[in-house]
Write a protein that binds this DNA or RNA. Structure first.
Lengths: 162, 162
DNA sequence: TATTGTTATACTCTATAACTATA
DNA sequence: TATAGTTATAGAGTATAACAATA
């Protein structure tokens, strides 16, 4: 695993051509870093951002939420507790089953996730800016193919922000 | 931010063509998930994995280590404490300055990071398997260009495993 | 009895501030 | 005084196990 951090100690590193494997691995760290930075600017963790992202087009039960985020029920309780304390989400009792709690975005939460997402996507777009339009679209096509193949093979494995 | 998690509730989702921005954002989550999974199989967190990765080709001081990982000194102390308790790293007193502590991988730590890295890289390689060799190498070329441009623009921003 | 959600508890990870020991 | 590292403390995030309320 060649390290980009090597540039820290070897600044004169000649630009080498990375393998697709190494390049994508490094790129994934860069992109996660962009998200962390944009979310952090609003005092939001990646976990909170994923929570808000999931809620953008859903009002799930606590149980469904935990499954969507790949967390234990008790972890979801804590995550929602902290988000609720900050006014980003609300707990709504279900009318049909008194055991069930639904989780919903507040207006503040919705505005926050929209703002962070927009800035993050702009960052990724800026990252892609050195590419020519044809390069960009062939990259999009190749990456789409990878994601579709991966989703087909693993079903429900991918969990981006939302 | 289109969500891959949508496939959870809409399994019949037709394969859509994602934009390069959305595709790369999602792909970064997939790749981070692969790493988390392989590290987790050895009871190792991403933070511990990054620590071990940094130490693969360095024996830094605590201070250097904190800088390399982008952490506060005190966070590095805790990270190294836990790794040392598990026999993955050792603290070595500096011979030239009695305030300084160097951090080194143990053989166990070195074997662990090698094993996890190898499996993770194989996972990424498997992810790329649907691509034809020419597609793979053009992907490698494009991604390399992005990383070089990003490194040039931001200096020391990229922090993969190591 | 089974399910939904919370609570109790414990551990990792991170940060800030104060401290010790060198330099 | 300044630097290297640790400790004290606090909070987020996660998990397991036990629990209460409801079905």
């Amino acid at each position: 695993m060649p390290s980009a951090a090597d540039r820290f100690t070897e600044p004169a590193d000649p630009p080498r051509q990375l393998s697709a494997v190494d390049g994508l691995a490094q790129l994934s760290f860069v992109i996660q870093g962009l998200l962390e930075h944009r979310a952090g600017a609003r005092q939001i963790s990646i976990s909170q951002m994923r929570l808000l992202g999931v809620l953008r087009d859903r009002t799930p039960t606590m149980n469904e939420l935990a499954t969507l985020l790949g967390l234990d029920k008790s972890s979801a309780t804590g995550l929602v507790d902290r988000a609720e304390r900050r006014g980003l989400v609300t707990r709504v009792p279900s009318s049909s089953d008194r055991r069930v709690v639904l989780v919903d975005l507040t207006d503040v939460g919705r505005a926050l996730v929209a703002a962070v997402s927009a800035r993050f996507e702009a960052d990724v777009a800026a990252l892609l800016e050195p590419l020519s339009p044809p390069d960009r679209s062939s990259l999009a096509a190749v990456v789409s193919r990878l994601l579709v193949a991966h989703a087909d093979a693993h079903g429900v494995d991918l969990f981006p922000l939302a």
